[in-house]
Amino acid sequence: MNRDNAVLIIFGVLALVIGIALKLFIGRRRFYRRNSLGGEGFKNYRSSLLTPFWENLLTLAGGLLVFLGIIALAFAKWML
């Protein structure tokens, strides 16, 4: 195994772990913010606008990290 494969494997595993952790963290936050009727409760109007915006960006980033992690691990396997 050369240096390129090691870097790809390390990047792939880290990207997968961080991406999955981000998606689980955001999903947990959304789950616990819901009330008995299924609506999300916010403190004020500003947080009701900003919180979903940032959570959607983080969820997108987590999905991209998972995708890049899978691609990096596939390239590391292909380069062996």
Results as ranks from 00 to 15, higher is better:
19 G>F: 00
23 K>M: 10
38 G>I: 00
37 L>D: 14
25 F>M: 08
7 V>A: 13
7 V>D: 14
68 L>W: 13
55 E>V: 00
80 L>T: 05
69 G>Y: 04
60 L>M: 14
74 A>G: 04
57 L>H: 12
45 Y>K: 09
47 S>E: 15
24 L>V: 07
58 L>D: 13
31 F>N: 15
16 L>Q: 03
54 W>C: 13
29 R>D: 14
25 F>T: 01
35 N>V: 00
14 L>K: 04
69 G>K: 00
35 N>S: 03
80 L>Y: 04
19 G>D: 05
4 D>F: 03
71 I>L: 10
28 R>D: 15
72 A>M: 07
22 L>V: 01
34 R>G: 03
21 A>G: 08
28 R>H: 14
22 L>P: 01
2 N>D: 15
37 L>Q: 15
29 R>K: 04
53 F>E: 13
76 A>F: 03
69 G>A: 05
65 L>M: 14
41 G>A: 06
76 A>T: 02
71 I>Y: 07
13 V>K: 01
52 P>E: 08
31 F>T: 09
11 F>R: 10
11 F>C: 14
2 N>Y: 05
76 A>H: 05
71 I>M: 06
6 A>E: 11
62 G>L: 05
13 V>N: 03
75 F>T: 01
53 F>S: 12
36 S>H: 02
50 L>A: 02
43 K>G: 08
70 I>E: 14
23 K>E: 12
19 G>L: 00
80 L>R: 12
61 A>W: 03
5 N>P: 05
41 G>H: 00
64 L>E: 11
45 Y>P: 12
66 V>N: 09
67 F>R: 02
77 K>V: 03
15 A>E: 04
68 L>H: 08
63 G>F: 00
58 L>T: 07
72 A>D: 13
60 L>F: 15
74 A>E: 12
9 I>M: 10
38 G>A: 01
48 S>P: 09
74 A>N: 08
22 L>A: 11
80 L>Q: 13
73 L>H: 09
37 L>H: 09
12 G>K: 00
34 R>H: 05
60 L>I: 09
22 L>D: 13
31 F>H: 13
49 L>A: 01
37 L>P: 01
79 M>Q: 15
17 V>M: 06
21 A>Q: 02
53 F>V: 07
50 L>F: 03
51 T>H: 06
26 I>A: 13
40 E>P: 00
78 W>D: 15
53 F>T: 11
47 S>P: 01
48 S>R: 08
32 Y>G: 02
